[in-house]
Structures are given as structure tokens and as C-alpha cells.
């Protein structure tokens, strides 16, 4: 992944600025191009405009939350197949509608990681695995 002709573009949608910075720094160190958004509305615009190779998406955000962004994104022709890793601290069953809700949103290529339970190494490994397996 370190030597690539065309850099892979990642979109990180995260409202917690420290997490966003740490994540961005690490992903850039891994050789990815990274664009960022602080909420779902901004994230959706960036996603539809730049078609990133993968989106790291937080769920609980002000204004437009992650699930709302995901639902809108899945209505788009490109967005329906976009690679997404939900990276959140809301345990799926805690969320309104629980597993089912996220399960529905998980249509397309979508995975789910609970931030506290995974290291940055794990996140990077998951991204590489997901993009490599395409």
C-alpha cells in the first residue's frame, strides 16, 4: 500500500476534532489521501463530489448524523455501492432501532467498528483489507 501509483482517497466524517486529527495524521502516514468533514451534511457533499475510495463514518454527530448521511448516500447511484466503515462509539444495539437499523443501512459494502475496541492499527488493517479485497 505504501507505493501506489494512484493514491487512495479516504473521507473521514467525524465531529470529534481530536479523533479526526489523530486518524487523519495516521492515515496520511500510511500513504492515503484524506479529506475530512465534521458532520453528515458536509460529508455527503464531499462524498458525492469526490467519490472517495472509502468513507470512515461516525454515527452520532450534530446536525446531520451518520445514519441520515448513509441513507441519503445509498440513494445515489455511486453512493449505493460506496465502501463504508462505520466508526462509532454508539454500540449498534444502543442505537434507535438497534441492530436492524444499522443492519438495513449496512446494505452495500459497509462494516462496523466500535472505536474504543479497536486501535488505529486495527482501523488501518481493516481499510487495507477492505480495499484490497475488491
Amino acid at each position: 500500500m505504501t507505493k501506489l501509483n494512484k493514491k487512495i482517497l479516504l473521507l473521514v466524517v467525524e465531529d470529534e476534532i481530536i479523533l479526526l486529527n489523530v486518524l487523519k495524521e495516521r492515515l496520511m502516514a500510511e500513504g492515503f489521501d484524506v479529506i475530512t468533514a465534521l458532520d453528515g451534511g458536509e460529508g455527503l457533499k464531499l462524498a458525492l463530489a469526490q467519490h472517495p475510495d472509502l468513507i470512515l463514518l461516525d454515527l452520532l454527530m450534530p446536525r446531520v448524523d451518520g445514519l441520515m448521511m448513509l441513507k441519503s448516500l445509498r440513494k445515489d447511484r455511486w453512493g449505493a455501492k460506496a465502501n463504508i466503515i462505520i466508526l462509532t462509539n454508539v454500540k449498534d444495539v444502543d442505537n434507535e432501532g438497534g441492530k436492524l437499523n444499522i443492519g438495513l443501512a449496512l446494505g452495500g459494502s459497509c462494516e462496523y467498528m466500535l472505536k474504543t475496541n479497536w486501535s488505529l492499527d486495527d482501523v488501518v488493517a481493516r481499510i487495507k483489507k477492505k480495499l484490497g479485497s475488491e
Partner: peptide, 22 residues
């Protein structure tokens, strides 16, 4: 409460986790 606690407790924990890792 569960939902809020879940998120509010985990966020600072994940910040510490990832910053230390970096």
C-alpha cells in the same frame, strides 16, 4: 441513559487510546 453513557464514556476513552497509540 445507556445510549448516552455508551457514547459519552467511550469518546474520551477512544481519544486517549488513539492519541497514546500515535
Amino acid at each position: 441513559f445507556l445510549s448516552v453513557a455508551s457514547h459519552q464514556l467511550r469518546t474520551p476513552l477512544s481519544i486517549t487510546k488513539w492519541v497514546l497509540e500515535s
